[in-house]
């Protein structure tokens, strides 16, 4: 069996051939498309390390069959930073905030945390409330215990976005 999927991955339209309907989005990215930023921590939707955006929404890529995604737009951690010219990379504000607030230790959950935070910002339900941020980041486990820095980083990114929005309005 061979299935042909049209996917937009990090802004690039691709035709992806798969020969097995069992392949999850996570395993497609990691084992077949060399996009290893999304991590496999539990493979059961219990840890959030595999979080990516599908059509702009954060989801667990480990619990999504690739074959069901024909036509979808997928954003992974690799697609988040802008091009900063030769040799440079412009970090997404959430990425920069994670560094600034030490929102990670081992870094394994970090791509998932960051994609989740980007999804959270887009959803717009947290406001500037730390408790809401904590609640809405609770789908991403961090065994190192970097939660304080994660929360601060997300709040920082929310504030920056709100500031930018005010500037745009002015």
């Amino acid at each position: 069996m061979s299935l042909s999927l049209r996917l937009d991955i990090n802004g690039e339209p691709r035709i992806v051939e798969i020969d097995d309907p069992r392949i999850t989005l996570l395993d497609l990215l990691r084992e077949r498309l060399a996009l290893t930023g999304a991590k496999k921590g539990c493979d059961r939707g219990q840890c959030g390390a595999c979080t990516v955006l599908v059509d702009g929404r954060r989801i667990n890529s480990c619990l999504t069959l690739a074959v069901s995604l024909d036509g979808a737009e997928i954003t992974t951690i690799e697609g988040l930073a802008g091009d900063g010219g030769v040799g440079g990379e412009r970090l997404h504000p959430v990425q920069a905030a994670f560094i600034r607030h030490d929102g990670f230790q081992c870094g394994f959950c970090t791509p998932g945390q960051i994609m989740s935070a980007v999804g959270l910002l887009a959803e717009g339900h947290a406001g500037a409330d730390p408790e809401r941020v904590r609640e809405l980041m609770s789908g991403n486990l961090c065994r190192c215990g970097a939660y304080r820095g994660i929360t601060e980083a997300v709040l920082d990114a929310i504030a920056a976005e709100a500031g930018a929005a005010r500037e745009d309005a002015a």
């Binding site: 939707g45 929404r57 954060r58 989801i59 667990n60 989740s116 999804g119 809405l136 789908g139």
Partner: peptide
């Protein structure tokens, strides 16, 4: 229930 990621799906 669940997590934001799961609720999105």
């Amino acid at each position: 229930g669940a997590s934001p990621q799961l609720r999105n799906a």
